[in-house]
Nucleic acid binder design. Sequence first.
RNA 1: GGGUCUAUGGGCUAGCCUGGUAUACUUGCGGCUUUGGGAGCCGCUGACUCCGGUUCGAAUCCGGAUAGACCCA
Length: 467
Amino acid sequence: MIMRKETDFSEWYNEIVEKANLSDKRYPIKGMNVWTPYGWKIMSNIDRFIRKELDATGHDEVCFPLLIPETEFKKEKDHIKGFDSEVYWVTHAGLNELDVRLVVRPTSETAMYPMFSLWVRSHTDLPLKIYQIVNTFRYETKQTRSFIRVREIHFFESHTCHVTEEDAQRQVEEDFEILSNLMKELCIPYSLLVRTEWDKFPGAYYTVGLDTAMPNGRMLQIGSIHHYRTNFAVPYNITYEDADGEHKHVHQTTYGMSERLVGAMIGVHGDDKGLVLPPAVAPVQTVIIPILSKGNTDAVMKEAERLRDTLANAGLRVKLDDRDERPGSKFFDWELKGVPLRLEIGMRDIENNVVTFARRDDGSKGTISLHDAPDAVRVILGAIRNDMYSKAWDKQKGCAETITSTDNIPDKMLRFGWCGSEECGHRFEDDNDLKMLGTPYIPEEFDGTCIICGKRTDKVAYASRSM
RNA sequence: GGGUCUAUGGGCUAGCCUGGUAUACUUGCGGCUUUGGGAGCCGCUGACUCCGGUUCGAAUCCGGAUAGACCCA
């Protein structure tokens, strides 16, 4: 197997997805792939974390219907303009043509908000904080890629309603905290950029894009947080009665991240040997490889099974690889599949009361005592998580390059002065085949000139080629 | 949005130009031997994307559909 992550990222990515068996692309609809068990376990582990975080911050899980009546879908003008060209339509039921066509949800604002209008009556009903983990559908015309650009998208979306704009803003801040907790487990670095006016979510007041750098220098959007103000509450008539008996529109936010997180994890952590999974989401956190030889098979297997049971009882996701293969072959397999920690146990180890371990993230090896294996394994997994996280951040920090002219633009994340006008923004994008990612959410000191018009500016913007 | 290329067992692939018997490797299944970094031998299962055309005969030639890869906007 020859994999070259740094030089042929695109090929490398496809090869990893196929060989590690994360997804089966052979389903005969473009952009709709089958989640195979290993890939789905990873996604489910991510979902589990999302549930934990959202539940802990007072969100309730719900599940809305997949189909949305055209009449509801079209209530918010900008929203429909943004999604018109990429939704699937249900036009028939059996042999009959439908009077009101149905949209297969591309996102659930227009499904939820008519119900919100019924649910929210009083200021005591607020804040309303709900989320769902479902699949959505968008008709992508561009080239598709497993997890990164698909037509059926597995994602979570949280929707909140608040009394005031300030309350809604506080929700956005809470979302950043949830994001931070989640990314620590997935070991993925990210930047927070306020999207340009022409790139914000259709119908939003503002959008914060969450981006992470891929090895080919391009930025991958892994999620977004939107502040809607009352932009949806007005057309959907979501109002509450305040303490003074006055009826007011709610202020709303949404937050969403998708299966792209899996794509980001592959891209950020993988290497030429295959996947590298963060311990929190790895379907198998540690694999035990028995080293057998003639005459000691039973003794070693017995010890290996005991080790497996001990670790499993301690709550670790452990697998004993008892296939009739040579150890080397098993090493390659599990490295390809990204298992964070490998334990080897043979006669030599048993005689010394130890287990040999090998870390997937940095390749380091050593031994741990058989007696306190569960604690030792937990410590190593924790170290793997921390090292993966900080290593990934170090890499991302160096990834943005400040440029002052549009000559010889490098293929990476770009930082530059921007006067803020749409005209300059569009020209920058069109002339250089780049996508503006936006301006920093957390303001950055800047003193320079707009890269297009040359006007003095203290505003800085980011851009990159899109994936 | 525009263009180029591709489609053969589960995976990878030979054959296509010049029409007639489909090749190797790998996976899977069974067996023997092996096991501290991709083991070896034997046996078995398993394929020409779909629709139409040309032809006595099509994986091969022609047209279309579908799916995939890449390039440009």
